[in-house]
Each structure stands twice: as C-alpha cells, then as structure tokens.
Nucleic acid binder design. Structure first.
Lengths: 259, 259
DNA sequence: AAGTGGTCTAGACCACGCG
DNA sequence: GCGTGGTCTAGACCACTTC
C-alpha cells in the first residue's frame, strides 16, 4: 500500500461523519503529513487522481488542497505537481537589541544577501511627513530591500529617512547604518511595533510564498541620541521562517502582575 | 448610481487587462472599500447578484469574495449576507514589561472578561516535561482562557505549570499570578517568542474570525527570582486586533549596527 | 417563504514544466 | 506531447437568517 493511499483509507473511515467532503479530505491529508506517512518534498497524487480515486469532484479536491497550501502544509508548482512543504527552520531575532541582519545571519552560519527593490528620493507620504517631521516641500529618501538567507527570501524592509540625512540613496553600500554613521546620524534607540497580517500578492511573490499566508509586519522608528527621529522602517517578515524573541521584566518591586 | 455599482464600473474598466476574472473582481471590491465608497458594516450585493450583473459565474465571485474574507476585508454571515468588515482599533502591548492583561485593558477603558477553556491536572507532554523540568510521573497543571475585551475575543492563553506549584487549578480566581503569589511563586522575568501563523479552525472559531487569517503565536517561559522555570504559556492573539511594541537599544558603546 | 451563503458536481480550456 | 496546476462555467441542493 503506497504512502499516498493511506490518505484514501483515512478518507473512507471518515466518510460517515457528515462533515463537508473537502474538510474530510483536508484532514486526511493533514493527518498523513503529521504522521510522516508522506514527508517533506514528497509528491501528492495529482488533483485529478485524487478526485477520481476518492470519487469526488476536482473542484472539491482543490478546495481542500488550497487550504493546506495557504496553511503552509503543501506547496504547488504549476505544471509540475503538489508536494509536502519542506520543513523550515526558524530564525530567531532579539527584540531588545538593535542588531544587524547581516551579522545576525552570519553568526548562524547562513549565507546572506540582499536585493534592492527601490532606492531614491520621493515626495513624502502623509505618514512619512508625520513620523519624520518633514514639510511637504522636503523630500524623503526611500530604500527598500529584499533580505535573503541561504537562498530563502526572509523579509522585505522598506526604510524612509529625511533626504537631509541621506541625500544620495544610491550611494549606500550594503549597510544603511554604516552610511548614516559617516555623517554621525547613527540611531541608538528604536521602537518596534509588531503585528500579524495575511501577505498580499506583491509581498507574497517577493517572499516566494503563496498569497494569504501569515506574515509578521513590523514598523520601526529609530532615534538619534538627541531624540530626533532618523528612520521609519516598515518591514514584512515570513511568518514561517521567523521568531522574534523578547525578554520581559518587572520594572520595580511591588508591581502588580496578573496576566 | 449606488455605491455598490461603482464595483461594476471598475470591473468593466479592468476587463481588458487579461488578468483572471476573480482577481479583477477582488481588486474592484478592494478599491471600493479603500476609497470609502462602501464603508464598514455596509452590505455587498449577494453573490448571485454580483455574478449576474458582472456576467460571471458564482463560483468565480465566491473565489474573489473568499479571498477578501480571509484577508479580513469582508465578513460573511450565513443566511444573511456579505458585509464590509468593521474597522478594528488595535490594542498595543508592551514587550518589555510583564503586565496584566486585565489592568492593561482597564487602563484603556475597555470592558474585560475571560472564559475558562480548561483547568485541570494532566500527564505532561514531552514539551512540558522539557521546559518545566518535570519527570513523567509528575503532573502538570494546565489553565486555558479565552480573553475578551469589549465583547471581542482577543486571545487564547494556555498556561502550563508544575502541579507542585499549582496543585488545585480549579481554585484560581481571576488571576493566575495572584494565586502563584500566595505561595511565593510569582515570576519576575519571562522570555517570549513571537511568530505569525494562519489560525486553524478551532482557534479561529474561538476568536470569531474566519479560519486562515493571520494570528500572532506567542510562547512565554516565566522564571522565578531563583531562576527556576515556573510557567510555560502558549498563546494565540488575533492579528487584526493586536500590536506588540518593543523598544530596542544599543547595549553598549561601539556596538556594531548594520540592519 | 424568500433570500442568503456553503457545498458540490461534471466538464472545459488555458498556462506551465518536463522529458 | 503529455500531465500538471490555474481558471471558469452553469446548475444543483443544503443550511441558515429574516420576515
């Protein structure tokens, strides 16, 4: 009995449950993956094969499979087939220290590179005017990068700075902060806001995941020692590849704590 | 021209783009919402109406609408209709202080309550044995709560503690930490790991969101002053309702920073 | 009872990949 | 060329809400 046939066996067992067919099928496939009957990289039968063997329509098979693709369990390659998604080892990043993406990854023995998505001077958006304290006649420097580790895209970083501190975005080498440091504009403090979002089409394509999977959305505002805002960065991280780690402390004795 | 008709106008304009029909329709609806032509709470035409007016099949309409539901733009109520999702004001939570959910929300003037999902003593899972340092003959106390603010479910918290520090989980009042404090077992420090995930059916139902929307998954390990692990909590937060805020600092002078 | 979303079907054509 | 996933159709029945 082939591994994939286990799926059909489980399906038959659940066939009197009254649950929708696509749910029964979805659970059967999920079970087969969780039990290791089919492992990462293995191919599933084609949608048409599943449909005919399980005696359900291809539309219904697709609904089950699509759900699992969006959940990151399966991956589909147009013209090629449907496969169990490779297990992704997650990367941890500290939430209490300003660290370098490049160095962070290098310390983990990962091969890192970036792709420029955008570098230039623009008229500021209302958001940027507010946060960076720009007037509508000033310009904003935007730099956007796709961060890649071991050939896996991990994050999209879109930074905005006043053009007065970064008049020539094209001149940045591999490090934005190094460029800022040469003019004494290196941030010493930042505040980050983290939330979850379903990735849109554009971001999903860049990060090589199906649209709709969960991602971490991060807004960072960086400050100079003087307290002036220097940088406003909006980033999107792959939810399946990233863990952010934070340490919580009691700030004083006698503090009330009831989580 | 009714507000909803704007959708069809936009659809006709994009009809020569060559893009898939469901994408054209999805974008038209998204645009109408973003431009405020239809606001939160407003009803969309029924799937059948959209299908006939736009001269496409209902299956295709459903694909477009489903995508927007999973993205949190629309909500559907079985038997009632499809509506623009109400704008959710996000709640911010600090990532550097151990704070109380109840107090945090009360400070914001929100009405808070919890629903117990589980309270009891169990044989520990391998995870729990590892983290809490239990042997397989010891028991683990599990307490799980659904956190609700202003009648909106915000989070599911599932805590695990050694039964030796919480022998009677049923005896907890509204505050786990208060119960721990009476025996001198109140944590003073915690480490959190944050990631993003698509919510599964069970969690999505509890949080009253459609399955598959993005949520924040948080693992917290809490420590006593002695350094002993006291609590292991796995939580799931609604991604559309929560922002976690962290402050980053340079830990010392001369530190390398190149994000 | 009428209208809504939820599920399901059988069949079609297109776009992509692989040998 | 052949098999794969990607899109689309027209029609059906069920389950739920609302009147």
């Amino acid at each position: 009995m082939s591994a994939a046939d286990q799926i059909f066996a489980m399906l038959r067992e659940s066939s009197q449950s009254g649950a929708p067919l696509y749910l029964q099928l979805r659970r059967s496939i999920e079970e087969a993956v969780n039990r290791g009957l089919i492992g990462p990289g293995d191919a599933l039968p084609s949608e048409r094969d599943i449909a005919s063997k399980a005696d359900i329509s291809r539309v219904t098979v697709r609904k089950a499979v699509q759900d699992l693709v969006k959940g990151g369990i399966l991956v589909q390659r147009h013209g090629s087939g449907t496969f169990v998604a490779p297990r992704m080892e997650r990367v941890e990043q500290s939430l209490s220290r300003l660290t370098s993406f490049t160095e962070d990854m290098a310390r983990r023995g990962m091969n890192v590179r970036s792709v420029w998505l955008d570098r230039g001077l623009y008229a500021p958006s209302p958001d940027e005017m507010m946060v960076l304290g720009l007037s509508s006649t000033e310009l904003v420097a935007r730099v956007a990068r796709l961060r890649i580790a071991n050939d896996t895209p991990l994050a999209i970083e879109r930074a905005a700075l006043s053009a007065s501190v970064l008049p020539d975005p094209e001149a940045i080498g591999s490090s934005l902060y190094a460029a800022l440091g040469t003019t004494g504009n290196r941030p010493v403090r930042a505040v980050q806001r983290i939330s979850a979002t379903n990735l849109g089409d554009a971001d999903a394509r860049l990060l090589e995941v199906p649209p709709g999977v969960a991602g971490l959305q991060i807004e960072r505002i960086s400050y100079l020692a003087s307290g002036k805002v220097i940088e406003f960065t909006r980033s999107v991280y792959r939810g399946d590849a990233y863990d952010f780690v934070a340490e919580l402390r009691l700030t004083g004795p006698g503090e009330e704590i009831r989580p």
